[in-house]
Design a protein around this nucleic acid. Sequence first.
DNA 1: GAAGACATGTAATGTGTTACATGATTCG
DNA 2: CGAATCATGTAACACATTACATGTCTTC
Lengths: 190, 190
Amino acid sequence: MSQDLPVTSYAILGLLTFGDELTGYEIKQRADITLRFYWVSPAMSQIYTELRRLADHGLVRADARADGEREVTSYAITDAGQHALRTWMAETPAGFPVLKHPVLLRLLVGHASEPARTREMLHDYLAELDRARADLGDVRAALRGADSPGEPFRFPALVADWGLDYFAAEERHTRQALASLDDSEGEATP
Amino acid sequence: MSQDLPVTSYAILGLLTFGDELTGYEIKQRADITLRFYWVSPAMSQIYTELRRLADHGLVRADARADGEREVTSYAITDAGQHALRTWMAETPAGFPVLKHPVLLRLLVGHASEPARTREMLHDYLAELDRARADLGDVRAALRGADSPGEPFRFPALVADWGLDYFAAEERHTRQALASLDDSEGEATP
DNA sequence: GAAGACATGTAATGTGTTACATGATTCG
DNA sequence: CGAATCATGTAACACATTACATGTCTTC
């Protein structure tokens, strides 16, 4: 009955379980502030493609309404969609995370690079981590007040906290790597 | 001059910087124990495709030799390959890691699942983390003896340590999430 | 002599991106 | 009134996976 959909489909479906109807555009915005950190933020075109597919399967309902001159289409999850999501969560194993970590990839072949360049890359990463942590911190702050057990943002708050801890850990690991590099190459620099 | 190649191309090129010539098959094995943790382990067919491309660009040299009845082709990085890799590392920004974390994705929409199922998923993840940590630990152990500054496996050891710390952090975060879930839902279970 | 590892590839397919295209609405 | 945002899509293409196909070599 429930054909397998790509995970991103279920991710979008999941975004529609927080109550309101959303346009493709709004879904993109939500994805940019939440999904981005744990999955991907699909391109706009991808979102519209997925919404079409979900609608074809009856998992979302497309609500077209006129907004002045233009047609705006909002999407809401259907009962079938709720059911499909639950089934997917209950019956398919989550699977192990896939990490595409360009910093670690480059560090792995660090012997093919200038030590100074490697250090620069790690410092750049620290700066980006800081920005990411600030962004996610803003999201986390916005959830306050509705993040207790039983409240709507309980689970988003849980994963936001996880994400913040993850960024903190990455920062530590980066500093450790830098320290380790300084131990050896640093002897040249007085 | 140096057209942009996909990152996976450079990853394979990087695997060839550790001295020896490798067959496609051997590259797959190396990828399975190293790249897997920080990037991806490409499918065999993908590896052969990339090797063909790298050879077309003159970045690797294909060495066909007879091994009994069959032809076996080993690949070695060329000077042009070394140069391309260095240029890539020096001139293109690494970019921020992309995390495809199905456990966090599902936890995000935890309100659409049975609490018991969510807990089960987290416990499954703990078990998988344990296995991954053991695998990476074996790799790390195999690097011992050549992992000091200046030695060939210095950088692989650095990233392996990073990876082990990352797994440890994930384990902590998982346990924290479980504890948080127990705090609320656990009240029902005496 | 069968099983499993070694070794190499083609074909079909799918997920997802970027580029392109279009137009309305809002805000300064 | 121009820029930014809102809103929706099509087309071309790239990266990567799975399925399929083939055969040798090694080990039990």
